[in-house]
Amino acid sequence: MSDLIGYLVTGLGIGAGFALVASGLVAIYRVTRVVNFAQGAFAVLAAMLTASLLGAGVPHGLAELGGVTLGALTGLLVGAVAVGRPGTSPGTSLIVTLGLGVLAYAVEIVIWGDQPRSYPGVPGVAELAGARLQAHYLLIIAVTVPVFALMAWFFTRTDPGRALSACASNRYAAQVVGIDVRRMGLLAFTLGGALGGLAGVLTTPVQQVTFDSDVALIVNGFAAAVLGGLTRPVVALAGGLLLGVAQTLAAGYGGGAYQVEVALVLMLTVMIVQAARTGPVAETAR
């Protein structure tokens, strides 16, 4: 029983990380219809910078902020290349972000090398209903939930947020009322970068990063987001948590093997069921 609770909470912690990656994907996709393949790279870059800053004696909090800021700036940069040119189709943009994700490898290796990095998070072990788990997982959950609430507030209660939602809802109408949809696309990428960065800095203490950790991050993030059709942040949160729990349960009771498979098969099943319900999805990537 206490095993189960431990797995559940750990799973929620891991899932919260997926949900943050997913939320960045969703933030970008809603506005630009681009699936941003470089989303995992934001997390890796942010985590690497945070590790360096902490190593240089910058205190916790400030170091993480630095990482998230780098994520946001990288997001802006990726957005500028991917959707900055008028007339770039979402399919083309996806391939561009794929290329930029690979470019990030080069940058990361030059600056930080190709060895895994990590840093200490919340120290110690927490006891929860008899279950023992790394206390840091609780921090991940404690940050993620308010971040999603904040996002909901931002998208519905602030004018820039409303403008982003407007672009997501009806691009043409957004142009009619004078919203610069390309600038909104860049804002979405910046936001996505910050969210990806946050995912990276939060999860690194429990899951070390390597330059190529981005693949696992993006796939799990996509799996979480695809549940809500890539457009619904709340469903992405639920999807991320579900995925995290499914993985830890599989790992816990399955002896460590096949946790990757669980998430991926879940994602494939969801997509195939969705496609069967709605007919082939019309977007074509090139």
């Binding site: 695809v226 999805v281 019309a282």
Partner: peptide, 22 residues
């Protein structure tokens, strides 16, 4: 898998490869 299109198919094929490697 081929019921999927575009980025869904891209991620599905990627997932297949990750599963295979694992």
């Amino acid at each position: 898998l081929l019921r999927l299109r575009g980025h869904h198919l891209a991620f599905a094929t990627l997932a297949v490869q990750l599963i295979l490697l694992s």
